[in-house]
Write a protein that binds this DNA or RNA. Structure first.
Lengths: 225, 225
DNA sequence: CAGCGTCAAGAGCAGTGCTCTCCATTTTGT
DNA sequence: ACAAAATGGAGAGCACTGCTCTTGACGCTG
């Protein structure tokens, strides 16, 4: 009830945090595939079974780490946006920050944008934090009232409906053409980061800094910035 | 020596194929994470240790499956291209075929375009078959002599060099601007498929057929088709 | 202070990848 | 044609995993 919890609750909260921290540390070393509950417990000086008082399963621990990772990359993107000034500069900042976070936390990135690890679950808890980067991009774009793209292909009624309901969800009424292009840019951002981190650019654009830079500008054009 | 191998060699080749087939079958059911050598051996009526006469490790088996998957999706893309006719129609066919293969073999797709599973290896054997889809796209584009994009951002010397050497590798001399846009389209294709298969589009563009259709056309514009 | 809920610990189960030894069979060289 | 060499299957076994269940101790609360 009150702000000061019982000793037990505080201990529990702290241990939960320590477990996640240690798991994150091991994740960075051995990847999601090699994350072992027993090893985490061992490192914390406890027995593996005790860990199940805090996380009912290994998958659940991973899910928590997934949510945290979405929030971390989302926060990185949001903080990078100065919030005012030249829209293209802001766009650039968001893209660079997202890529920088991914390169600094490759295993956490793989956890959220790689293949879904457990039994194909995309837990409901993840869809809100997962949208933060996209929302940061949308904020930059919509505050700059983009010009309509020169060439606009016809759009099916179904897609137009999806785009409009998505615009409503973002709390801004933007033309469907702009929304779909934003989705394209969002896809492109993570597609390029994934390709870079997962080794698909090896042999073509490697290192990828110059290309990513170029791509950032191209996609700013694409969305009408 | 001769075309007819010894009985042992034929048996070995056949068993190797059977092992891969069974592994692929299990892959489709339980995913890469759950693929078990013992289960494969069990299903084939042999003992797990015998399997190691054919594949030195689980990772090596997975690598073979990865190469096969690259070839399969590459072949799907190549076969979809009629080889002549309207370039945008050809472009469309390649994109649709690639997506269709991915949706039909989600676990195999995750194997090659998801997070690298083992210890971060991108085995050298994979980079040639990995390029087949990109090459199919390049073929369509370069045979249609695309018009230079209207707006061309300046390009760093490093990127221009990468693009030109890549054009050489493709056996065609295309302007660097076209090559970088092709890389963008290639990235976008697999970025969108990954987002769809890995659940990132849930809540925004889901189902994704209409959007993918739209995107295909947008990216055809993007590369100058 | 008694009783209830919480939690660490340990043993144990079923499963994994992988190695090693042993043996039968097949291939090969003389 | 026969012995030597290679191959490949079977089985036992190691070290590890996620997870469950029971036991006993501790802290919180009525």
């Amino acid at each position: 009830m009150t702000a000061t919890k019982t000793a037990r609750e505080r201990a529990r909260a702290e241990l939960t945090r320590e477990i996640k921290d240690e798991a994150r540390r091991q994740l960075a070393e051995v990847g999601a595939h090699g994350l072992s509950l027993r090893a985490v417990a061992r490192e914390l000086g406890m027995v593996s079974s005790a860990l199940y008082r805090y996380f009912p399963s290994r998958d659940r621990l991973l899910t928590e780490l997934i949510i945290d990772a979405y929030d971390a990359v989302g926060e990185a993107a949001e903080k990078a946006d100065p919030g005012k000034g030249d829209p293209r500069t802001r766009w650039h900042a968001v893209w660079q920050a997202t890529r920088a976070w991914a390169k600094a936390h490759p295993h956490e990135y793989a956890l959220i944008y790689g293949s879904p690890i457990p039994g194909y679950r995309a837990p409901q808890d993840t869809i809100v934090p997962a949208a933060r980067v996209a929302q940061a991009m949308a904020k930059v774009l919509l505050e700059a009232d983009p010009h309509e793209p020169a060439v606009t292909a016809p759009m099916s009624a179904e897609l137009r409906g999806q785009a409009e309901s998505l615009a409503r969800a973002l709390g801004a009424h933007a033309p469907a053409e702009v929304v779909t292009r934003l989705i394209g840019a969002w896809t492109q951002l993570f597609g390029a980061i994934s390709f870079e981190l997962f080794g698909q650019y090896v042999g073509s654009v490697d290192p990828s800094d110059a290309y990513f830079e170029h791509l950032t500008g191209q996609m700013a054009d694409f969305v009408g910035l």
